[in-house]
Nucleic acid binder design. Sequence first.
RNA 1: GCCGGAGUGGUGGAAUGGUAUACACGUGCGACUCAAAAUCGCAUGCCGCAAGGCUUGAGGGUUCAAGUCCCUCCUCCGGCACCA
Length: 829
Amino acid sequence: MEKYDHKKIEKKWQQRWEDVQAFRAEENSSKEKLYVLGMFPYPSGAGIHLGHAENYAATDIYSRFKRADRRNAVGYNVLHPMGWDAFGLPAENYAIKTGVPPQKTTDDAIQTFRKQLKELGNSYDWSREIAANSPEYYQWTQWFFLFLYKNGLAEKRLAKVNWCPKDQTVLANEQTVSESGEKGVCVRCGTKIIQRDLEQWFFKITDFSDALVDDLDQVDWPESTKINQRNWIGRSEGAEIDFAIRRGLTSADNAEKITVFTTRPDTLFGATYMVLAPEHALVADWIAKRALENNDEVAAYVASVANKTELDRQTDEKEKTGVELKGIKAINPANKKEIPIFVADYVLGGYGTGAIMAVPAHDERDFAFAKKFNLPIRCVIKPLLAADTEEQLEQKRANILQGLECYTQNGDLINSGQFDGLGWIDAKQKITEFVGGKMTKTYKLRDWLVSRQRYWGAPIPVVYDPEGKPHPIPEEHLPWLLPTDVEFRPTGTSPLGLSKEMVERTERIFGKGWRPEIDTLDTFVCSSWYYFRFGDPHNSREFASKESIAKWQPVDLYMGGAEHTVLHLMYARFFTKALQKFSYVNFTEPFKKLRHQGLILAEDGSKMSKSKGNVVNPEDIIGPYGADTLRLHVMFLGPLEAMKPWNTKSIMGVRRFIERTWALSQNVSDTPVAAETERIVHQTIKKVGDDIETLKLNTAVSALMMLLNHFAELPKVPRAAFSAFIQLLAPFAPHVAEELWEKLGNKGFIHETAWPAFDLAKLVASVAKVAVQVNGKVRAVLELSTGVGEVEALAAARAEPVVAKWLVEGRETKAMYVPGKIISFVVDH
RNA sequence: GCCGGAGUGGUGGAAUGGUAUACACGUGCGACUCAAAAUCGCAUGCCGCAAGGCUUGAGGGUUCAAGUCCCUCCUCCGGCACCA
């Protein structure tokens, strides 16, 4: 028999699979549907990296296993597609640098990706390939925009953007950090960036805040990912409370009030001042009416904050800044005391009501502000403390009561009038009622800004009439094509603004003086609905037919990296919920089961990066070792979800495993299967199946290795046992498995065979090794027949000299036998 | 600061509360070879000649039995971070 030649074998089977389109999902099938999806990649010029190989090998192993799995009696009709998240910045930046159009760069990259993924032997249904940059696809991305617009879920409003005054361009947040790590500057020219207000399109994801939190309970996702989603939405429950305003000595305007949001209404009696966000509408209003004693000072402060980017505001000095609004006071509704009002940038305009009641005794930020501005600090919660000594405890308590320390825990109320002594849970509600406030919820989640002043994206399907009023483009004009007569270099306007063709097209269709929207859609919009398209990729009338949705959705297993997925998953869930609300789909979560593959690090444990020159590419491995070896090795490195270092040396381990399999196939004969071999085969069938189901792919590989090690000890390898082994190996190393399957004389593809069944009765050996413990220490290992009862087992153990040595007559206090596992004696000395 | 996750041989890692260190890498010795590579065989947690003792980040607890469950602490990694 010839040597194992991975190049020849892999090429041969990849060609055969291609010839018969082996992995097409069945259109009419009595099998149970199963939709397995890896997050579609951005096709970068560098080709696939190990993270892709890991992600897609895992979904491929799972898909191949499920196609063979018959435990549900009817089998599985598996949909396992691949496509390209092909719009985005890198291709555009490359165009700016070199002048090569993004279309060209992207098409080339897609060619490379497709070729490389085929070389991995992944079993995709290539007839369903999609690319987000193709008009056939983005026409439906644009349709989604119109769908949301029609239903009041998309709207245009002013928003702040990062602006580079030198390059005259808008910058994404991640483009505001220089290569040396300096923040708040343009990544290209290093110029300090400023904030500019532009009219931008938003999707109203916040309409679904509650569902986005609550429905997480329905899905099988990693708990940490669910927590990240919940944190991002940031739902918190609290109270809205009105504070009356008093201006100067006149009472004419006392009707004015400010509503604050607080999660701690129980501390209302401790609210000694109030703070408004610089963006708060009343601040601008008062300045405009010159209602304050220090209008100019306040206006200057507000202006200084407005120039700051969000980044500045977060990372600047954590030193508190602010200005008192002189001539105006608020009334604490609990104790009717007059308190000062400040404007300060530590209060955010977009959260809660943009106004807070400051309780310096029980909030660290308010405490810091109060210290700086010398404001009263009034303790209203009795501190519950722990400290090493009684002295320290007393000192701490005294500090808190005197306002020298901040106490942020809960406790019973003090200094709160008739509420003194009340527990904090009761107090929240009672005080809120007392002042006529209402319990409410607020969220950190903001509406999704989808406008990008960029070229390489789906054009926003909107035109403006001569008065400048936006109109959605009627569906019959979709796809609203991305023009090609543009300039890639930044010119101070969105690139589409330079297209003559687009203006002509707009005027031709809509009339003289009409203008196109020149921004494009955030690429996250493309990826928010692509999983629907795979069910019906060539539909020219709908984004996906009702039948295809009923047939394939939702995704049964979704796999992708844990980084950068907070947003993608959130947006995809939002799209699905919007579709459900308007009866396009009848489910609420797009991905039933989600798993992440862990990052593969360089050998020294650092991150792989081009600049460090420590990147290992899948290509480098497939060449010398083959795709089968790469697939096995990536899975064998460690738990799928764990971050793990790459190891080029140990790759020889799995390569040897394949070579030994190859060699042992020559030793196969029609000898009967010995009981021990049969048992090990059945155990391995169960173990590998269970492990693939739960995606513990590393231990599945080691189970296969153990079975092979057993075969190597036999004089002849029984054909039936070896065949089963090859079938178990097939999802992991599909090429060599097909080749050996054929060499064993079988007709047809191994991937079309049914997964071997195991017999529960054959899993257990008739003789079990049982450890004998005396006082918790193993003193001997006995071979006991599995039918043996406790009395016999204990007698056998006592008869063993090494055990007897440790037993003391009359001192035994306990003796037990856990069948097939352990005998335990306790001896009292 | 807050929220997650993880600490097991020289290395990657394995272990439904039941023989810790499976599987693999590496290393050592041996076989084959003129020689080397490849391959095959044996050994390989630590201390000890042995009997035996010790060992899953540290310390305590529950249990006949703890890497696994509970408490306290340390370290590392990831995410969020002025969110009232």
